[in-house]
């Protein structure tokens, strides 16, 4: 009987030999997974807003284009080359982003449009304007497009159409949120619903997360369709 017992003991030892490391590894990995999960929840809860994919993002643009100078109606920090204080020009958003009221894309103006004014307007010595004039082919160099960095970018699976949103908000100004500097009328007020007060930003940054929740909330409030396929196709 003795050997048999011993044999049995041996097998149980073998069992343990395997079981212990398995348990140890298993326990550790369970702990790791749990830990990761907890960390995940905690950061999700308190960690936001963490700049992820577009949120609060801004870029150094190839030309330092001040939206303030062009779009604001207030006095600016910006000083002209002769030192006199400047007031923003208060140009309408649609002056440059021409297709926003008619097309899906807001559209970046062509260099040609910029140089219509900047052929004459603006100092000759300004480094930024020199870059622009170079791109526009006004100086010696051949004309070339400007590669602006995109600030507001929706993922590829979303089809956003500016036109219908702008049209709706133009007709229902009371639905405009985040109105920029009190402006609720015209494109400037309308745009601010999603883009914030661009006129007061020297460099545009994304102020709204532009996540689907925001879209859907707004769609619900305004009786707009919430059918997935309206935006996702």
């Amino acid at each position: 009987m003795q050997p048999k017992l011993e044999k049995k003991k041996n097998t149980s030892n073998n069992w343990l030999k395997i079981l212990i490391p398995v348990l140890a590894i298993g326990g550790l990995s369970v702990f790791a997974v749990l830990g990761a999960f907890v960390a995940f929840i905690i950061t999700a809860w308190w960690g936001q807003p963490i700049p992820v994919m577009g949120f609060e993002q801004t870029f150094e643009q190839p030309i330092h284009f001040p939206h303030t100078v062009h779009a604001s109606v207030k006095e600016l920090d910006h000083v002209s080359t002769d030192g006199t204080p400047m007031t923003g020009l208060g140009m309408d958003c649609t002056f440059c982003h021409r297709t926003v009221t008619t097309q899906p894309n807001a559209g970046v103006p062509s260099v040609g449009l910029c140089t219509t004014c900047h052929k004459v307007i603006g100092s000759k010595d300004s480094t930024e304007l020199t870059k622009l004039r170079e791109s526009g082919g006004l100086l010696d160099a051949a004309s070339s497009p400007i590669n602006w960095k995109r600030v507001h970018r929706l993922p590829d699976h979303v089809r956003f159409v500016h036109e219908s949103h702008i049209t709706y908000l133009m007709q229902n100004p009371n639905k405009i949120k985040n109105s920029s500097s009190g402006v609720t009328e015209g494109a400037a007020g309308v745009c601010s619903t999603c883009h914030g007060d661009v006129a007061s930003m020297e460099q545009v940054k994304q102020v709204e997360a532009l996540k689907m929740g925001q879209c859907v909330d707004c769609h619900r409030d305004n009786g707009a369709p919430t059918d997935c396929v309206v935006c996702h196709h």
């Binding site: 963490i50 949120f55 103006p109 040609g112 997360a209």
Partner: peptide, 27 residues
Amino acid sequence: KSAAGAVIFAACGLPEKELIVQSPVEM
């Protein structure tokens, strides 16, 4: 938006070129 999310997004971040909008010279 969580950290884990950030890691995942960072790992497969957008190609630089997709963040570029070109303004043509003369439309």
